[in-house]
Design a protein around this nucleic acid. Structure first.
Lengths: 205, 205
DNA sequence: TTAATTCATTGTGCATACAATATAAATAGA
DNA sequence: TCTATTTATATTGTATGCACAATGAATTAA
């Protein structure tokens, strides 16, 4: 299995709490399980460290702990950049991209109550990723996606039931505001979106 | 020489154009020059890649090219985050931190015309770093510092004379607005600061 | 002379061997 | 029994060897 695949796989495992926060990683063990040597594994772990998923605990790599302070910081940055990102996306998104977003909107509306949490979440992530692309700022898109993933891991750590209608409410409002090219409405929708994020997390502490 | 030092040294070399954009790096050669093996060197290069200083060109590492598009993206993000960062810093900075900023302000005012460009720039970076700490958002601080460094490399690539008075004008206005706890004034100063950045770069193309 | 092909050179990716260090276990003394 | 010290073990850090890929030079054919 090549490096890039291992990187993606491990990131997913961390986000979905398949690798628990604060667990310590064993290089040789991982190398064996992926059928490669320690060298490329370590390189992947260094990258994951740079992305904030791992940190050094002595000479070992540790899955970054869930910390309220960290998620406060993440959300604070998101609250500014995502709102502005939406606005840039509104003005810069191409008709093709907008059409693709419309398709996703349809998919969301067609979700039945039987949809799994994972399905819904992955659809939401996909939606946001497309939206971020629309900003025409690749660095911002990358940043926002990373912040969203970190938020997601935190969010997943709190067991909950998802109601599709409520889960996608702000997301749908955002795409409608973009379609309507209504900046004030978009700004409000974006702010509401983040506020809900904060409330959901803070209400559990 | 240990890893961390090598990392800092190479980053400085890249920022100050001692390692030119688009140059290809030779692992064995670097290993020899630092008196270590290729393994730790490669780990450092992977980290630098994650920070945006290097990218992969085939199987080689290349110093990231200077690109107008990239610096446009960087500046766009800065224009939002730095203004908001200043505001958070204004409300959250501790009296000790504010005093330290005051000291830097003094240092700036005492600069004579004989000061080297490098001295002035390093003082400016130091000032911004302290200001970013004041946001009480370590992730934001780290991000802003990185964006500033990337901007700096670009800025340094255009030969120019620096006039201390003009170079520090906006910076000084920012600290005064913070001392005065005047949000409107701070917002204006921050915006002017970024606008000057953009103008300086765009005027050369 | 030009184009194409071969061959040599150079440099990296990955694996592995070895050294250093941290961790855990075991033993001896109080 | 508890503690301290030593010993053993596990795990990472670093160096290096080898295979392969990319690059460019040289040689050959058109």
């Amino acid at each position: 299995m090549e490096s890039e695949k291992i990187h993606e796989l491990l990131k997913e495992k961390i986000i979905w709490l398949d690798l628990m926060p604060e667990s310590l990683l064993n290089l040789s063990e991982m190398a064996k399980s992926f059928g490669v040597s320690r060298t490329p594994i370590k390189e992947v772990l260094i990258i994951l460290q740079g992305e904030g998923w791992l940190l050094r605990q002595g000479s070992h790599f540790m899955v970054t702990p869930l910390s309220l302070e960290r998620i406060r910081e993440t959300t604070e940055i998101r609250s500014i950049m995502e709102v502005q990102g939406n606005i840039w996306a509104m003005y810069r998104i191409t008709p093709e991209e907008l059409a693709a977003l419309g398709e996703l909107e349809k998919e969301i509306l067609q979700l039945d109550d039987m949809a799994s949490n994972r399905q819904m979440i992955e659809l939401d992530v996909k939606f946001h990723r497309r939206l971020f692309q629309g900003t025409k700022n690749s660095q911002l898109a990358q940043l926002l996606e990373q912040l969203l993933s970190h938020y997601l891991r935190f969010w997943l750590s709190i067991p909950r039931e998802i109601n599709p209608k409520s889960f996608f409410a702000e997301t749908l409002e955002i795409i409608r505001a973009i379609k309507a090219k209504d900046e004030a409405r978009l700004r409000a929708a974006g702010a509401a979106h983040i506020k809900k994020s904060v409330d959901e997390i803070m209400s559990t502490f």
